[in-house]
Design a protein around this nucleic acid. Structure first.
Lengths: 187, 187
DNA sequence: GCCTCAAGTTAACCTTCGTTCACCTGCCCC
DNA sequence: GGGGCAGGTGAACGAAGGTTAACTTGAGGC
């Protein structure tokens, strides 16, 4: 598991950003956490914002890629279950990134922020389409979108719940997300 | 609807903090947003941290009070529904405060943070007890706690979904939260 | 053996921003 | 009608922190 120094820095920065908040983490803190000192980070990144941007772009693109894979399943109910499973896995594996994902987006420069938002919207769109197919006639577009956001909120709450063992948490979250979406459609 | 200047400042500060993040909002910004200039805020508050602290203490105590009320209902399923309804109402009425509640807690000074955390834990405890009674034998303590956190995540996701009209969103969130908790218990 | 370059180092710079200070101004009260 | 206080103002201060600069060093390539 040898990661390049660059990746090591990104991982550490993600953890610190998630724990203390982007603005509360100094370049010196990040440097110290990987054993080098503040300004040395500029040999690897253009600056602090660039690190955050790269993290958020990576996350959103990874999620989108995973979403496209899982949504390809023909049977809508199975596709929905696969999407849920993917999101749960991701949230449990990368709680820091999940936290960053909705805490720190405003801190990235406008241009890049729009790019990230586009990718996020595409990901949401995948879910909405699958949810609509999985509950045909029970949800309109607007409701489906709201329901999907709520499901994200449910699944992405895991950073608050990491005390619970994953073998228990993962299946419970899958059940809950599925149950929540069914309930949303049970008008 | 005449609010004191003090309250006006708190409301505006909450909005700005929620929108841009605590650290990204300057005292001058807050002042400008209420028509006075930076340092004048010190006539009303000890400082920036004091404003945030007061906001977070208020929120957690209001939620706890509301929770205690609703949990007093004897029938566990009804109590759970009432808790859900209360949280949904609060989240829809005060999206800024909900956002602050889990984005900015780390920014308040340690001593006060612990106080707030205690109140939050008490609120969670209320939910856990009601959830356990509402689904007797189907959840152990740890599972119930995880499920409750997930339900909070679901309900508190509303700041992302404010485009949807409340008369649609509110009942949908209630259904989804109830459905999610039932699914958690349906082992 | 030397050149180069990647990857560090420390010191310094400069902006931002929370906070303090000294001062002003109505309004209320007796 | 003169204190006194609540609520402002603008200027200044000081610390924090992102970034830059100048310099060092060790490992390959020719």
């Amino acid at each position: 598991m040898t990661v390049s120094r660059r990746e090591q820095i990104l991982q550490v920065a993600a953890r610190l950003f998630a724990e203390r908040g982007y603005q509360s983490v100094g370049m010196d803190d990040i440097g110290a956490a990987v054993g080098i000192s503040g300004p040395a980070l500029y040999k690897h990144f253009r600056g602090k914002e660039a690190m955050l941007t790269e993290l958020l772009v990576d996350i959103s693109e990874k999620l989108l890629a995973r979403g496209l894979e899982r949504a390809a399943i023909e049977e809508p109910a199975q596709a929905l279950a696969a999407l849920i499973e993917g999101q749960v896995e991701f949230a449990l594996r990368h709680p820091d990134l999940i936290t960053l994902h909705d805490h720190a987006l405003n801190q990235v420069p406008t241009a890049e922020r729009h790019r990230i938002r586009r990718v996020q919207r595409a990901y949401v769109e995948i879910w909405v389409e699958v949810a609509l197919k999985a509950h045909p006639g029970r949800l309109d577009d607007r409701e489906a979108r709201a329901a999907v956001h709520a499901a994200f909120g449910l699944i992405n709450s895991t950073p608050h719940t990491l005390r619970t063992p994953q073998r228990i948490l993962a299946p419970m979250l899958r059940r809950m997300a599925l149950g929540a979406l069914s309930a949303a459609a049970a008008r």
